[in-house]
Design a protein around this nucleic acid. Structure first.
Length: 271
DNA sequence: AAGTGGACCTGCTAGC
DNA sequence: TGCTAGCAGGTCCACT
């Protein structure tokens, strides 16, 4: 469900409220992508530190170690002191003195993994393959250009992969390419330096704007307050196959790349 | 090494 | 109205 903006908005909505709280209990539902990695009781009495984000992952420090959380395709987090009885899709509750953090995830592609350190084991492996943060100074046209030059896959797939830059999922990758005027089928190594510059800028502005607007193009997105996403961000191409382009008089097209839907305007976006 | 396709799991929608 | 096929925001892993 969530791409970087949704994950970041979620983080901002509960991080300051949970920080400093002490864990009093843990409840597990059905299995997620990976096992928790420790007995649930081992989390009790630990104190929650400052929640951070890396790509689409959240890191929740608990004493010396912490929990790595991912929302997968359909996950969301809620934090509150009056939690309803867990439903069939509520697979993780972290009960603290200040409220309960609950992961709801129907498809269970999400994850909650304990690690004694973000630099150890599975967590280190997962975080280790991630590309740069889009808002990091290290992510600019030069960086993107150099990384794309080493790849032959279509630029859309290179963006989605997350090994170059993290955070742009299927929706925002489509939107950023539209904003940059680049055909998603263009081979990565054929993207010129100026176009890489424009694309880097488009990735940053697309994701940044989505974070600022607190939300999302996702219909069912809610932050951890349960605040319904206002659906403030209008997708220019995503999900609009057959509809008129918002910039020219062309028609938005849907193709499949690497098994995922891609939406673009063939008139506005060039190879 | 890089690219490709299948896998994970459930819910919703469109179409018959 | 009810069933089925197809699709969905992610990303790991095995294989070529």
């Amino acid at each position: 469900m969530p791409e970087l903006p949704e994950v970041e908005v979620t983080r901002l909505s509960f991080a300051s409220r949970i920080e400093g709280a002490q864990v009093t209990g843990v409840r597990l539902g059905k299995p997620l992508r990976w096992p928790l990695g420790c007995p649930p009781e081992a989390l009790v009495d630990r104190r929650v530190g400052a929640v951070t984000r890396r790509g689409k992952y959240l890191w929740l420090p608990l004493g010396a170690g912490g929990l790595l959380m991912h929302l997968g395709m359909s996950g969301s987090l809620a934090f509150g002191d009056t939690m309803a009885a867990p439903g069939p899709h509520d697979h993780f509750d972290l009960v603290t003195g200040r409220g309960t953090l609950r992961l709801t995830d129907p498809r269970r592609f999400g994850a909650v993994v304990w690690s004694p350190s973000p630099d150890a084991g599975l967590v280190a492996t997962l975080l280790g393959r991630l590309g740069v943060e889009p808002f990091d100074a290290a992510f600019d046209g030069a960086h993107l250009h150099a990384a794309l030059r080493r790849r032959k896959v279509a630029v859309k797939q290179a963006l989605l992969g997350g090994a170059i830059v993290v955070g742009a999922g299927n929706i925002y990758a489509c939107e950023a390419l539209f904003e940059a005027g680049i055909d998603p089928r263009t081979r990565s190594d054929r993207i010129s330096r100026p176009r890489a510059e424009r694309l880097a800028q488009a990735v940053r502005s697309t994701l940044g704007r989505a974070v600022e607007l607190g939300g999302s193009t996702l219909r069912d997105f809610r932050d951890a307050h349960g605040t319904a996403g206002a659906f403030q961000i209008q997708a220019k191409v995503y999900g609009r196959a057959g509809e008129p382009c918002r910039r020219c008089d062309g028609t938005v097209r849907r193709i499949v790349q690497g098994g995922r839907a891609t939406f673009f305007c063939p008139a506005c976006q060039r190879r």
